[in-house]
C-alpha cells in the first residue's frame, strides 16, 4: 500500500472537483446561514499514518482544540472520515450562526451540528460531481479541551498506512469564526478515488 502516488493529472482533477464542491457548499451555506462562509484553497497530500499525530500536534499544539469526527461512505468503495477542528478561541458564536438561541443548545451540540452541516454540504457537492451518493455517520466529539488531540491519536493504532488528506479552512468573518476541515481517505479507498479520477480524465 505504501507505493500509492497521485499523478499530476489526478491531483489537478481532484483539485478542480474540490474547488467546484467548495463553491457549491459556500453558496448553499450562505443561503441557509444567511452569512458568507469563506472556504480557503485546499491543500492535498498523501500522509503516512505514523506521521499523522505529529502533524496534528504541530498545527494545534499550544491551544485548546476540539475535534469532531464524521464518517462518510458511498458507492464504489469511496469512504473516509471528516475531521472538524476548532481552536477554542476561534469557535465563537456558533449558536448564532446556526440560528439557535444559546439556551436551545449545549456547546457540544453546537460543535456537532455545525460540523455535520459543513461536512455534508461540502461532500455532497463533491459526490454530485462524481455521480456518487454519500451516507454519513453521526458526528461525534473525539477530543475536547480536556483530552488533548495528539494524546488521543497516539493511543490509536491505525489499520491503514497511507491516507489521502485534504485540508480546507472555513471562515465566517461576520462572526469571527474559523475552523479547519481535514478529510482523510485511508488505504484502499485512495485507489478507488484514483479509479474515479481516471475515469473522469478519460472522458475529458
Amino acid at each position: 500500500m505504501k507505493d500509492i502516488a497521485l499523478t499530476e493529472d489526478q491531483r489537478d482533477c481532484l483539485q478542480e472537483l474540490i474547488n467546484v464542491a467548495m463553491g457549491r457548499a459556500s453558496d448553499k451555506l450562505a443561503r441557509y446561514l444567511q452569512t458568507f462562509v469563506h472556504l480557503q484553497v485546499p491543500y492535498i497530500e498523501l500522509i503516512d499514518s505514523q506521521a499523522l499525530p505529529e502533524r496534528f500536534a504541530e498545527n494545534y499544539a499550544e491551544e485548546g482544540v476540539s475535534l469532531v469526527s464524521q464518517g462518510f461512505y458511498g458507492e464504489r468503495g469511496i469512504l473516509g472520515e471528516s475531521l472538524l477542528i476548532y481552536k477554542s478561541h476561534d469557535a465563537h458564536g456558533i449558536a448564532e450562526i446556526l440560528g439557535y438561541e444559546p439556551d436551545d443548545i449545549s456547546e457540544v451540540e453546537q460543535l456537532t451540528d455545525i460540523s455535520s452541516i459543513l461536512t455534508t454540504t461540502f461532500l455532497n457537492g463533491l459526490a454530485e460531481q462524481i455521480d456518487n451518493q454519500l451516507a454519513y455517520s453521526a458526528p461525534r466529539i473525539v477530543s475536547s479541551v480536556d483530552t488533548p488531540l495528539e494524546q488521543h491519536l497516539e493511543q490509536l493504532s491505525f489499520n491503514w498506512d497511507l491516507a489521502l488528506k485534504v485540508d480546507i479552512s472555513y471562515q465566517v468573518t461576520d462572526y469571527s469564526f474559523n475552523c479547519d476541515m481535514v478529510l482523510l481517505i485511508p488505504g484502499e479507498a485512495i485507489v478507488n478515488i484514483q479509479a474515479v479520477l481516471d475515469q473522469i480524465l478519460d472522458e475529458f
Binding site: 443561503r31 439557535y100 436551545d104 456537532t112 455535520s116 452541516i117 455534508t120 455532497n124
Partner: peptide
C-alpha cells in the same frame, strides 16, 4: 420546537442529513 424546526429546515435547504445524539 424551535430547535427541531431549524434542524428540519437545514435538511430541506441543504439536502443533507442531520443528526441528534
Amino acid at each position: 420546537e424551535k430547535w427541531l424546526k431549524r434542524k428540519i429546515q437545514s435538511v430541506l435547504m441543504l439536502n443533507s442529513p442531520a443528526f441528534s445524539s
